[in-house]
Amino acid sequence: MSGTSATRQSTLAAIFAVSLTMTVSVSAEESAHWSYSGKTGPEKWGSLEHDYDSCAVGHDQSPIDISDDDVHAENLPSIDFAYQPSPLRIVDNGHTIQVNYAPGSFIDVGGRRYQLMQFHFHKPSEEEIDEKRYDMVAHLVHKGSDGRLAVVAVLLAKGHASPLIDNLWSNLPAQQNQEIAVDRVTINAADLLPENHDYYTFTGSLTTPPCTEGVTWFVLQHPTSVSAEEIARFGAIYPMNARPVQPLYGREVRASH
């Protein structure tokens, strides 16, 4: 190898090393710029970034307390769940455990179809039902063909074990921000659902920054059971990752029956 070639390769290696260091540094900063407590907690989200303004000033924010006094029972269309098995792709993103779902699974509600993109967990439940929080909640995030989001919230209550949750916790990533694809393991989000699919629905937002509004929420009225051990296993990683409930500002909350 000539001296010129060696010098060029050395220079390129140095540039790559600096670039890699900057990428890791930026990723670490991005994953730490908001949290659930202290100086970067929910009360401060709106001031952390310009794009987070909705967290502070939005009037359609989530989660909410779903109170009997605010709920209107109606003959709403059913949620038709068309979930298929998916290879397990799981990531600890620094705020929760998230499962990224393969294409092909969706819900249909009143003639609108939303594709399932991912689901993740909060402890305790972010939603309150008459000021009561459940032990945990799973948020199943869907996207329509127009780009609008719909989230199905499945409340999780302490009881018998969930085989799906046990499978997920048995394959938790060892490091944050690195999605792992687990060989020969498939899961089905349908296993998270309770038998009864009655729901509450309202217009809300993402519950994490940037708190984007215009999200359609479907909160299932009946919980799914998870074991105390499964709750504790998640709690050992994320003891509390739930945003406080937000003002309703006159929004209509409807309930199927």
Rank of each mutant, 00 (worst) to 15 (best):
S2I: 10
G3K: 12
T4L: 06
T4M: 06
S5E: 14
A6L: 14
A6Q: 15
T7D: 14
A14L: 12
I15V: 09
F16C: 12
S19K: 00
S19D: 05
L20R: 14
L20C: 15
T21K: 09
M22V: 10
M22T: 10
V24L: 12
V26S: 05
V26L: 05
S27N: 09
A28F: 10
E30Q: 13
G38D: 12
G38S: 12
K39T: 14
G41K: 14
P42H: 10
E43A: 14
E43R: 12
S47W: 07
E49N: 08
D51A: 09
Y52K: 04
V57N: 08
D60A: 10
S62E: 06
D68Q: 11
D70P: 06
H72N: 15
A73I: 11
L76R: 10
P77H: 06
R89N: 13
I90V: 08
N93Q: 11
G94H: 01
H95E: 05
H95K: 03
I97N: 00
N100A: 08
Y101I: 03
A102E: 13
F106A: 08
F106P: 13
V109S: 11
R113H: 07
L116P: 08
P124A: 05
P124G: 04
E127W: 15
E127H: 09
I129G: 02
E131T: 08
R133L: 14
M136V: 03
H139S: 07
L140F: 04
L140G: 08
V141Y: 09
H142K: 02
R148W: 08
A150Y: 04
V152K: 00
L156W: 06
K158S: 15
K158C: 08
K158M: 11
S162E: 00
S162K: 03
P163I: 02
D166W: 03
N171K: 03
P173L: 06
A174P: 07
A174W: 10
Q175P: 04
Q176G: 04
N177C: 06
Q178C: 05
A181F: 14
D183Y: 13
V185Y: 08
A189M: 02
A189T: 08
A189I: 00
D191K: 05
L192P: 06
P194K: 07
H197L: 13
D198W: 00
T201Q: 06
T203H: 02
T203P: 15
G204I: 05
L206K: 02
P209G: 01
T212Q: 01
T212W: 05
G214T: 00
V215H: 04
T216V: 03
W217F: 11
F218P: 09
F218H: 03
L220F: 00
T224N: 03
S225R: 11
V226C: 01
A228W: 04
A228V: 07
E229P: 04
R233I: 03
Y238D: 02
P239H: 09
P239T: 10
M240Y: 15
N241M: 00
P244Y: 11
P244I: 10
Q246P: 13
Y249V: 03
R251S: 15
R251N: 14
V253Q: 12
V253A: 09
A255P: 13
H257G: 09
H257W: 09
